[in-house]
Design a protein around this nucleic acid. Structure first.
Lengths: 139, 139
DNA sequence: ATTATTTAAATTGTGTACAATATAATTGCG
DNA sequence: CGCAATTATATTGTACACAATTTAAATAAT
């Protein structure tokens, strides 16, 4: 190989740039329902299963409490979720959807399709990325 | 398709998670030379061509001055770069490497190989990502 | 030439990310 | 039981990202 420190030789830089570009593509769609991309991801999980602990959200999204706590407080401010300490284990904070948060799912229905149209990419290529991600994220 | 709002059905989430995981993998390597990943990327560009304007760095890394200005000030604090207004056009800030910043390239030589070892992935898969990135990033 | 427009950086404000630490509750062990 | 270790979340501090605005300099238009 030539100089491995050239930008063009970097294998991970395109991935970093692509990830940010995709968040940018989500932005206008999510703005319509006043959500950021990470907030949208949290709601995706809650729309599947109404009750989640902070820990469970963190495991699914690979985020820690340092990121989730303030993010969840913002979703609470917006009225989409409730945060309450578990009765059985006071250490645990349980996150549940409010009716407002539940109802937001309807407004979000169109987003996956609109994103796919915006991206206009072969799904097979995303499968490659999913495979790489699964391999690296399983520790 | 089933419910397109399920986390498992998301095509972009693995990319977002993978990008953060890779930054995590870089962290211990870059810590040895006291750099963050974005700072490392800026230096990669400067190691190729010693003089860059803020604008040129932004075009190559897809970052704006809101991100670059504070980042470059930190690199300046560390003694790796100089930031000085161009004589020909006072609007432009020219970024140049100091001898310290130049010398850092030696310490970084091992990083690409060590990352590849850490990732242990087929390079062909990264080519797929590069192709997706190129398509989306060319506007 | 004077003014309007454009351009390059910097600044401001919001929202992630994440390491490191703190706090409080629960569990495990002698 | 009493205390040490563990666990779940929150807090603190640093560093991106990026939209929106500001500032200052250069260019264009009349």
């Amino acid at each position: 190989m030539k100089d491995p420190l050239k930008l063009k030789e970097q294998y991970c830089f395109p991935l970093y740039a692509l990830s940010r570009e995709i968040t940018q593509r989500y932005r206008p769609l999510l703005q319509e329902i006043d959500l950021t991309y990470p907030q949208y991801l949290v709601l995706l999980v809650l729309w599947e299963e109404r009750l989640q602990t902070v820990n469970q959200l963190g495991e699914k999204l690979y985020l820690d409490s340092g990121t989730l706590t303030p993010l969840l407080k913002r979703l609470e401010q917006k009225g989409h979720i409730l945060r309450q300490r578990s009765k059985q284990d006071e250490r645990v904070v349980e996150i549940t959807l409010t009716p407002t948060g539940e109802a937001l799912k309807e407004s979000a229905q169109c987003i996956p399709l609109r994103m796919m149209e915006s991206l206009d990419m072969p799904l097979a290529d995303f499968e490659v990325i999913k495979k790489l991600a699964d391999k690296l994220l399983i520790k």
